[in-house]
Write a protein that binds this DNA or RNA. Structure first.
Lengths: 350, 350
DNA sequence: GTGAAAGCGCTAACAT
DNA sequence: ATGTTAGCGCTTTCAC
């Protein structure tokens, strides 16, 4: 049977359920939605017939009357890369149980495309929009204020009075630095990305707060190449560092590779901590990187919950919600024994 | 103004347009959809009023009558990673102009979750479903046959009579191998993934067809570590290869790194070609990898077009459509001059 | 050329 | 406790 035939032949409506169960559509509707009042017997009978007939309500029709589509839009300019992926996974996790589906729209950095997608979402009556991106201190190229639906910003900048979710760069950097200190490292350096990034500045500040205000911070690109270059710079002087906290895993991998090429043992002589926990790089590094995970999936989950609350009209306090990062132990810092001890110490300080 | 107020206050319906334009809703509808017959003047007037009022049709209501939601579902078990990303981008590109939105559903390898998502899509009246995955020779854990909507399989296995899109592993492997040959490499080896993958077998076959039936093929894991190991194996014998075609970029990166560690120059002494063109690894390799791109985005675009045709009831020939890969030149094979010449030769052979 | 009216499938007052 | 009825916002015959 072709799908067209199936479509015509088999889709059964609440009308059918009502008829078979011997009630009116109104009663059927109430029975199935657990609203209204009726004998338990009727309700059960209707539900059973519905199941027996394989009834699935038409979400469009329902949305039309209820003014709620059980659909949300996810807007991102990170063309589904490093950051959006885990965020999306979290959102889906939070929403699937509620029967909410997600429209995904990648808009690059194209304002026109952004507007098209937002309009399309609005036309499709989304209950809310989650905006996400690749940079915590940049806005998407679309104006999402004054929309007729609620908006949650996750890992992208939003207006001051919006509901915004970000990961805690400072706390992440602090954990990384203290992990290094817990390993007995004292000559610490932070090799990170361009200082035009707010994340870079925040992490650098937190690093200095733990490592000492005179601890060195090297700014560069977010690349392995910069990791190599930084090592070259660092070891041009007499006394190289014994602990390096890197702004992302790519830099960290570059650092580790460069160190190995110089015959410097990681983690025996130098400990290295990365940032991002991007498996493809952190796990492939030799030795695998101990790094900071931004808990993006949890951030997505939280965004999902919030947009749901908002959509249901529940009150949600506006403002910036900061979610903690967590340290992921691998082998670039030293023995597990030490590492575990270090983690305990960190925990005690919280 | 809160979004709730905006929602109530500002959403204007076709009824409003009709009233302001001084026509009936029926005429308004026809005017806006370019159907029916009326004076050009009326049509224009209605359209202008619509624009002036900022009218946006309610997609739900429209879907209800037209039995077409302008929505499709994208199902994937590649939790939005390496393969799904570009495919998705292509799909979106093909569909956004048509006003079609995409529900993204990641189902891991969980059959129950898969069913939940498929049901949700069906409830939401999707016009079609595109199934995609991380492996060309494996099925998603859900049965998509006998659905009331059309299905297109892209980069995942489907039933024999389905519309399926795959990339051309053989042709890709052939291009890689001939590129190596064009560089004068004659002692070729193929270092690839587990031979349980159909892709691995097809590529290996194509490699042998070009490199000679006795050319060596080494099977292993899809990892950098395996690349290292393979080099160790290869150089344990006297005469190492001078051209290595790798099954993916991660293996290739491992190979290139291992070669460098042995003091073997890439590309001066050995040329290496990867597979996948996964930027994060191919561009970060030193030297950057010449590799095969599976054109996943184009594959997505094609999937989008096909599902659209199907949704519109246009006839689409079932069967497997094989899309060509393309060689991406970087620096792991030799000079651009040679590389370009090589590409010309390849082109001539097509 | 234009409009009245009947739905699409469902929900929610309001009757009974 | 159950049913009748009036929509949700739009498209589409079918009259006029």
């Amino acid at each position: 049977m072709r799908y067209a035939d199936v479509a015509k032949a088999e889709r059964i409506r609440i009308y059918d359920v009502a008829r078979v169960a011997g009630v009116s559509v109104a009663t059927a509707s109430k029975a199935l939605n657990d609203t209204g009042r009726m004998t338990e017997a009727t309700r059960t009978r209707v539900k059973q017939t519905a199941t027996a007939l394989g009834f699935r309500p038409n979400a469009m029709a329902r949305a039309l009357t209820r003014q709620r589509s059980f659909t949300i839009g996810l807007l991102t300019n990170d063309t589904y890369g490093r950051f959006t992926l885990p965020v999306m996974a979290g959102i889906n996790e939070a929403l699937v149980d509620q029967g909410v589906s997600v429209f995904l729209c990648g808009i690059e950095d194209d304002a026109a495309l952004g507007k098209i997608h937002v309009d399309a979402m609005l036309d499709k009556q989304v209950d809310g929009i989650i905006a996400t991106g690749k940079r915590i201190d940049r806005r998407l190229p679309v104006d999402l204020s004054d929309l007729p639906v609620p908006v949650v910003y996750a890992f992208t900048e939003g207006p001051a009075d919006a509901v915004t979710l970000v990961s805690d760069d400072r706390q992440g950097a602090r954990e990384a630095t203290e992990h290094l200190l817990a390993h007995g490292r004292r000559r610490l350096v932070h090799v990170t990305g361009p200082d035009s990034f707010a994340s870079v500045q925040n992490r650098a500040e937190a690093f200095r707060a733990s490592a000492g205000q005179d601890a060195k911070v090297l700014y560069g690109a977010w690349s392995e190449a910069w990791g190599h270059e930084a090592v070259a710079k660092l070891w041009a002087q007499l006394n190289g560092p014994d602990g390096i906290f890197c702004g992302n895993d790519q830099i960290a991998r570059g650092v580790v590779d460069a160190l190995r090429e110089r015959g410097i043992d990681v983690p025996a002589e130098v400990s290295v901590v990365g940032f991002d926990n991007w498996e493809i790089v952190s796990a492939a590094t030799r030795p695998p990187l101990t790094t900071i995970d931004m808990n993006l999936k949890e951030l997505g989950r939280e965004a999902g919950r919030l947009i749901l609350d908002l959509a249901e009209g529940k009150p949600v306090e506006p403002g910036i919600r900061t979610l903690p990062c967590k340290l992921v132990l691998r082998q670039s810092c030293g023995s597990d024994r030490v590492a575990n001890r270090a983690e305990e110490e960190v925990l005690q300080e919280v």
